[in-house]
Amino acid sequence: MADIRYTKDHEYIRVEGDTGTVGITSYAQEQLGDVVFVELPSVGKKVDQGAEAAVVESVKAASEIYAPVAGEVVAVNDALESAPGTVNEDPAGAGWFMKIKIADASQLNGLMSEADYTSYLATLS
C-alpha cells in the first residue's frame, strides 16, 4: 500500500518502494486554474530536497514545483506535453509530473500525512 506525503507547497509524493511519484494536489490545481503547460525535468536529473524541479503554468500564473525529497528523476509524464489539462482533471492519478528515486527516505518524515495536510488546508481559507 502506497504512502502519500504532502508539502506546504501543495505537492504530493506517493511512495512505492524506493520511488516516489510527484504531482500537485487537487487544491493546488484549483488555485492555479486551467493548466496550459508543464515544464518537466530531464530523466536522470539529480535534485535536492526543495530544489526547483518543474514548472506548471496556467494562463495567468507560473508556479515552480519543488522536489519534496532529494533524489534522481527516473521518469517524467510526457503525456502532459500534449494534454496539460490532465493536471486539472486527475491530479492524483494521470496528472502526475515525475518519479523520483528517493535518496534519503528519512526526508519523508518531515512531510505531512494526509490528515496533517487536510488540517493544513483548513487553516488556509
Partner: peptide, 12 residues
C-alpha cells in the same frame, strides 16, 4: 503565453 513575461514571472 504571457507566463513568460515580467508582469507574471517577475524576476524569472
Amino acid at each position: 503565453l504571457s507566463t513568460r513575461e515580467q508582469h507574471i514571472r517577475r524576476d524569472k
